[in-house]
Computed example of a mutant assay.
Amino acid sequence: MTMIPLSHSPSATSIRPSSTPPPPPAARSGRWRLRTADTAGVGAADHAAAAEALLRSGLRPESLPRHVAVVMDGNSRWARARGLSPADGHKAGGRNLERVVALSRVWGIRALTAFVCSHENLNRPKAEVEHMMGLSEWLIGDNVDKLSRQGIRLQVIGDASKMPGSLRRAAAQADEATRHNSRLHVMLAICYSGRWDMVQACRELARAARAGELSPDDIDERVLASRLATSAAGELACPDLVVRTSGELRLSNFLLWQAAYSEFFYTDKMWPDFGEAEYLEALRSYQSRDRRFGQTRV
């Protein structure tokens, strides 16, 4: 099992497509195309309004979380409640992710990790899984140029062996095109699980030890963390705030190591309905927390 990308691993195979991969069939038919009118928060006026909303909210910009992680739950239930298909729900969820990325950039969030598809999601009906993979590929390809212009880095993390080849190529191309951007680091967790993440890190360390590159006694928390999927984000590898939508009160195998000292915010809103007001509420909740990291305040 490998991740995309494994920039810290000298044994990782780098994927360098020579041209943009073609969109999946449904995308070519127009079914998944995300029109500009559908993506709030991408224009200059929308950015100005979002910045003003942050000021009006009473939030302290200097105390915002640097890294926000979101479990984008409830897309299928959102669709079912409206008589729509699961595919329609995932499409709406993709649109909303664009909005949340735009808000994060305007508000000064430094890293955003979105749980797009888990290992467990791969057990859903084949048609739904194929749609999630195809939509993920299209979202990456349709946004990479815009994100690059905005100084946003886009990276896909997860088990590449479970991804279609076209998605792996789109992910590698996005990483190559945006790797030098630093305004916001967006990580899309696709075919990801926290347990898988720790297992693959241990395997890398075991291979390194067998090759004589390190001693087992050298392995500590810092060394193991350097092999996790989010390690490319450096000091931003661990989320300060984890947001979960749809009323579920669990982590669902997401960033198990990295979220050890994260603050959590749960909302009953389905992911497609998680908008600016809900995001501001999550940030207000975060700023109300006393983060002691196991220590006692004197």
Score class of each variant (00 low, 15 high):
residue 40 A to D: 13
residue 76 S to H: 07
residue 32 W to Y: 13
residue 55 L to E: 12
residue 33 R to E: 13
residue 33 R to Q: 10
residue 44 A to H: 07
residue 77 R to K: 03
residue 65 P to F: 05
residue 50 A to E: 05
residue 69 A to N: 04
residue 34 L to S: 04
residue 46 D to E: 15
residue 51 A to I: 12
residue 53 A to T: 07
residue 75 N to M: 01
residue 47 H to R: 15
residue 42 V to M: 00
residue 49 A to Q: 07
residue 70 V to D: 09
residue 37 A to Y: 07
residue 33 R to P: 00
residue 37 A to K: 10
residue 60 R to P: 05
residue 62 E to A: 15
residue 58 G to Y: 07
residue 68 V to G: 00
residue 41 G to M: 08
residue 53 A to W: 06
residue 39 T to A: 11
residue 72 M to W: 03
residue 63 S to D: 14
residue 33 R to Y: 05
residue 66 R to E: 12
residue 75 N to G: 10
residue 58 G to H: 10
residue 70 V to E: 11
residue 41 G to N: 04
residue 36 T to N: 14
residue 67 H to Q: 00
residue 37 A to S: 14
residue 32 W to K: 09
residue 43 G to K: 01
residue 39 T to Y: 00
residue 35 R to D: 09
residue 76 S to K: 12
residue 56 R to C: 15
residue 40 A to Q: 14
residue 74 G to K: 11
residue 70 V to S: 05
residue 68 V to M: 02
residue 54 L to W: 06
residue 44 A to F: 04
residue 76 S to C: 12
residue 53 A to L: 05
residue 52 E to I: 08
residue 72 M to N: 02
residue 55 L to A: 11
residue 73 D to Q: 09
residue 38 D to M: 08
residue 69 A to C: 03
residue 43 G to Q: 02
residue 75 N to W: 00
residue 51 A to T: 14
residue 62 E to W: 06
residue 68 V to K: 02
residue 54 L to D: 05
residue 76 S to Q: 08
residue 44 A to E: 14
residue 56 R to G: 14
residue 59 L to G: 04
residue 31 R to V: 09
residue 59 L to Q: 07
residue 41 G to C: 05
residue 58 G to D: 13
residue 68 V to C: 06
residue 75 N to R: 01
residue 47 H to Y: 10
residue 64 L to N: 08
residue 46 D to F: 03
residue 63 S to T: 13
residue 43 G to S: 04
residue 46 D to N: 02
residue 74 G to H: 12
residue 60 R to I: 13
residue 77 R to P: 06
residue 67 H to I: 01
residue 76 S to R: 15
residue 73 D to N: 10
residue 77 R to V: 02
residue 47 H to G: 15
residue 66 R to A: 07
residue 54 L to V: 04
residue 64 L to P: 00
residue 75 N to I: 03
residue 53 A to P: 11
residue 59 L to P: 02
residue 66 R to Q: 15
residue 62 E to Q: 12
